[in-house]
Design a protein around this nucleic acid. Structure first.
Lengths: 186, 186
DNA sequence: CTATTCGGAGTGAACGCTCAGTCCGAGCGT
DNA sequence: ACGCTCGGACTGAGCGTTCACTCCGAATAG
């Protein structure tokens, strides 16, 4: 039974997202999770470890969501659209997870070995890029530049959506995918 | 004499950027700045106020840098290039400032009234967008979407540069400006 | 001399984490 | 079937430490 671990994860996600790492004391996390403080330390070495494990879990969840309906058989344009929309959708539908990831990724506590997790899950994304460049449909740019021109745009838009600066409805989403495609297509 | 206030700002910038908000105790900031702890509280109400004031100061600095050589007389394409390159340059040349801004902007401590500061300084950026849309050179998109498609890309690239994932030399910078232009031009 | 600025030991509050003790179900002897 | 023992998951009051912030005497300026 991992019910308690999950309860601790959920409480941590909620508290850290809404109040920040250092305003989410272990005592509160335990209370919110319905367990004793000591129980946290049966599942995690310390608070930093708890945060780090939660981060890895969410990053994996995100990677899965991005590639939810991916298939290498589809046309490049459609593969792109799906990955892009999936990415945006995840961030829109999971504000707590997004706030947590963003907060931890930008903090100096992020462990170097944790920072690179994403790479191994996102193989299909690189596959897509290589195909596109090889076929001459995409510009010959580095994968990192591709990511910044497309996925980072999606993330930045969802952040503005979350803050209320824009409304990301279907129309805007389509405008944005098209614009991102223009940025990378030859 | 504002020498002490500046010393406190500098020490805070350095410590918070490298160690994080909560691993930069006032005692250390005071030591690094060469002042007593109490002196900090002569210039700032509390630590949160100090951080917030520093954030505003850096945001203003950034806005000035972005528009350093801007002129409404230049062709749209050139205006765009300058703003984009200036933005990237600032973030590349000011890693501490960037780390601080990014960290604070993504934390839940950011005051709502502080979050909107940038808008008033970036009037010329909106001017550029309005002109471009009016002249039919740019797509008819919202200013926020423009920002995500261009400036956020610049910022995201410099972050990768700072982390060592890519090297942002002149060539890559030019590739990126061109790609961003393709994203927004009609 | 007076007014103003500064310094840093000291204070109370809050934190992460520990550990002695509780609780409960599985296993065993009768 | 039943009572007893044992082991480990779990608890939370308490420990040691650290922090933001205060306060008042010292230093400095006018």
């Amino acid at each position: 039974m991992t019910g308690k671990q999950d309860a601790i994860f959920n409480a941590t996600l909620e508290l850290v997202s809404e109040r920040g790492f250092h305003d989410a004391p272990t005592s509160l996390i335990a209370q919110e999770a319905g367990v004793g403080v000591g129980t946290i330390y049966r599942y995690f070495e310390n608070k930093e470890d708890l945060i780090d494990e939660l981060y890895k879990k969410l990053k994996l969840q995100l990677a899965r969501a991005m590639l939810a309906d991916y298939s290498a058989d589809l046309p490049l344009r459609e593969r792109f659209r799906r990955i892009w929309i999936n990415t945006a959708r995840y961030h829109i539908d999971h504000p707590l997870e997004t706030a947590f990831i963003e907060q931890y990724a930008n903090s100096p506590f992020l462990k170097p070995e944790t920072a690179n997790i994403h790479a191994e899950y996102s193989r299909p994304v690189f596959e897509f890029i290589e195909n596109g460049v090889y076929e001459g449909v995409l510009k010959d740019l580095s994968p990192e530049l591709f990511a910044s021109l497309t996925l980072e745009v999606a993330i930045s838009l969802t952040k503005k959506h979350r803050e209320g600066a824009i409304v990301l409805d279907g129309d805007v989403l389509e405008q944005a995918v098209d614009a991102c495609w223009d940025a990378i297509k030859r």
